[in-house]
Nucleic acid binder design. Sequence first.
DNA 1: CTTTGCATGTAACATGTTACATGATTCA
DNA 2: TGAATCATGTAACATGTTACATGCAAAG
Lengths: 176, 176
Amino acid sequence: MVRRSQTELAVLGALAVEPATGYGVREAIKNTLGHFWHESFGQIYPTLAELEDAGLVTRTAAGQFAITAEGRNRLADLLAEPPTPARPRNGLLLRVFFAAHMADPADLRQLLEQAREEAAAALSRYETLADEVALEANPEVPNWMATIRYGIRHARATLDWAEETLADHQLGPDPD
Amino acid sequence: MVRRSQTELAVLGALAVEPATGYGVREAIKNTLGHFWHESFGQIYPTLAELEDAGLVTRTAAGQFAITAEGRNRLADLLAEPPTPARPRNGLLLRVFFAAHMADPADLRQLLEQAREEAAAALSRYETLADEVALEANPEVPNWMATIRYGIRHARATLDWAEETLADHQLGPDPD
DNA sequence: CTTTGCATGTAACATGTTACATGATTCA
DNA sequence: TGAATCATGTAACATGTTACATGCAAAG
């Protein structure tokens, strides 16, 4: 039984798409799951070692890790589990909530403007990503697109909220 | 210099609103910041002890913790810092992304339905909360409302996404 | 009088990041 | 040949949760 079930899920999932080195698993996660998931090497290598011990992955002749039949079963089990509830920790909202205690009201404006810029940037990254993914020939594409659509909706929610809140505080949009 | 800057910010912020016991700080965070922030006792008590050592809070005669002038300066400094970027870890999207490897396609449907229910429940909690907060006589109310509006927009984004995705997979809404 | 809520704290554990050490390969 | 990228791993640290121990006060 391997702990770290969420990391385990991410690693097994990545290897279910295609075999990869530990480095490659991290690249895969960074490039394709990057907008909603993160793993560091310090998590990936120990997890791969444990998965190998448990017979859920093996090393191929080419020096890559590949998922085993047992690994696929384990992956299916993990996918059926409800997501572990993440405790909320939103640094942006924490600051907005206590904004009355800021030294300078401009601090709030800057915070909101930065949130707006980041959301706008995220939005255009998602649009590009959606175009790229749509071209791939893979039965998993609909699911991948669903995660991108989630990103788009939430980025737009943040963008609209930031603009609304800027207007609400009569700080107005950046005139430059 | 106290580490744990985000916990420090949450605790100082709570005490800037009004003095409280350690227990009360946790209640305040749970009740008012609950939808976007979380702290456990294991974080709060050591942080309060460090804040006291640093002269940022003191114990009142009534046995409560109160923020000092230095504490308010520190709070203003922390509020001016950009939010520490949270590494994304969305267990729902992780499962959706790898849904092709689920044992049973109904698992995806169940996942999405649960996300939809949770978002709907969150939405109605926010509506209630907004009504309550609107009645409070406190200059911070506009900022508090802003955080609730953020919650509403994001809950609605999740709700719409879940319904869209359920329809997309031709699984349809739950007929019961 | 006993249960619930208020209150404080710690120790063990789980999780996760960062910095470092090391070396092969590729490409300019 | 030198820089960048691929590749593996560990150790120290930071953060955060959970379970436990303890006791008081209020309410029923």
